[in-house]
Design a binder for these strands. Structure first.
Lengths: 208, 208
DNA sequence: CTTTAATTTAATAGGGTTATTAAATAAGTA
DNA sequence: TACTTATTTAATAACCCTATTAAATTAAAG
């Protein structure tokens, strides 16, 4: 393989790993697969990242970060819960439409592997941003409840409901593909419909 | 190992495999693991089931069936959508509380493996019962809409929303365990809360 | 142009995996 | 009891996996 400046190769390996981890999950992806995709020797993957777990960690945390930033930008601009729900659902759908495997990736790795869960936990717990975001959301909810704009809801439950509905819309994509239609346009239409449905159902649950 | 009458051994292997597949998923479970759990030779697993995939299939279809039966019994007894929503959510929560890994098992295998998806597809497509159940649900919805008892909803969307909210309540259990509380009573309380929340949110979305 | 450091490779150790074999053991039957 | 069939085992073939090694190659610096 033509030698690249080290950073380039590292980058290429990460990208290939990303694609494969997203497609098949951690377990089903081998460092040999990754090297094959890049077109380099398998030992090179270990040269740059030492272990497979390490390589995974870097990729995983990138996504955790990207999603956090998404939430952050969003919550700072919204002044009402209804607004926030609309924006956050739209943002998630836009993001995940670009990377439709990310939801599966997250669900799978968070649920299947206590090790991976710990990884995320480490970067979340005592994480200033997480606490800040949650507090801002709580405050926003309290204000709207006091103003009689929404009914009394638990912030955790609200988050869980939104995340559930959004994630499963994407988790169901392979099923939609196999059972209903494999036409790309149909899948796009399905996602648009789901975005509306998710928003509707959450907003319904907030009505006084 | 003391020799058992063949059926007993087959049964024991299936049960061990079930436990392990549910706990760790298909990929992470080896036939060696299964044999170890049973306390028999690994070749015996292959003697009875020939391949690991085969063993998995039998277990998987058992659950598909169990969940179908659950739905069937339920839909036949309900006369209104609101009734049905209440009953089905309760039934799912009761069932999954007994087997809290089943939701993960399903989601994971359906999403990760197109082969496993095909397996389910084969037993679903052209499946009389599935069609019947869906038709009954559609009829029930139509009646209630006509009677002004619920607003116009798409049956598919309703099903997806219910399944989403229920499944993710269980998918989130490991997270709840690690991030919030590992106390068994707390987890039970969480599930009870979720059951109520799922019902509430769905019923809200049905209000005229 | 040579030395040095970074990159890449081939080779391999030390695991683990599924699946198949033939041989051993037990149970059932005539 | 002797033959037959069903179970169970040990052994092993034929893979794939991660990670490490030392050697080869290339790029950069003096």
């Amino acid at each position: 393989m033509a030698k690249l400046s080290g950073d380039d190769m590292q980058q290429k390996i990460m990208e290939a790993a990303q694609t494969l981890f997203l497609e098949k999950g951690y377990m089903a992806t081998s460092t040999v697969d990754i090297a094959k995709k890049v077109g380099c020797n398998q030992a090179l993957v270990h040269y740059y990242f030492r272990t497979k777990q390490n390589l995974f960690k870097q990729i995983y945390l990138q996504y955790v970060n990207a999603l956090m930033q998404l939430g952050k930008k969003n919550i700072e601009q919204c002044t009402s819960v209804v607004d926030l729900v609309h924006e956050i659902i739209h943002l998630y759908f836009t993001f995940f439409s670009q990377y439709p495997n990310v939801p599966y990736f997250f669900v799978n790795e968070l649920i299947v592997s206590s090790e991976h869960r710990k990884m995320v936990q480490e970067c979340f717990i005592d994480n200033q941003m997480r606490i800040m975001l949650f507090n801002q959301l709580t405050q926003l909810i309290r204000n709207d409840i006091a103003a009689g704009k929404i009914r009394d809801v638990n912030p955790y439950a609200l988050i869980q409901n939104i995340v559930s509905l959004v994630l499963t819309s994407f988790l169901a994509l392979p099923l939609y593909n196999d059972f209903i239609s494999s036409d790309e346009a149909d899948k796009q239409a399905y996602l648009h419909r789901r975005e509306q449905e998710c928003e509707d159902i959450i907003l319904c649950s907030l009505k006084v």
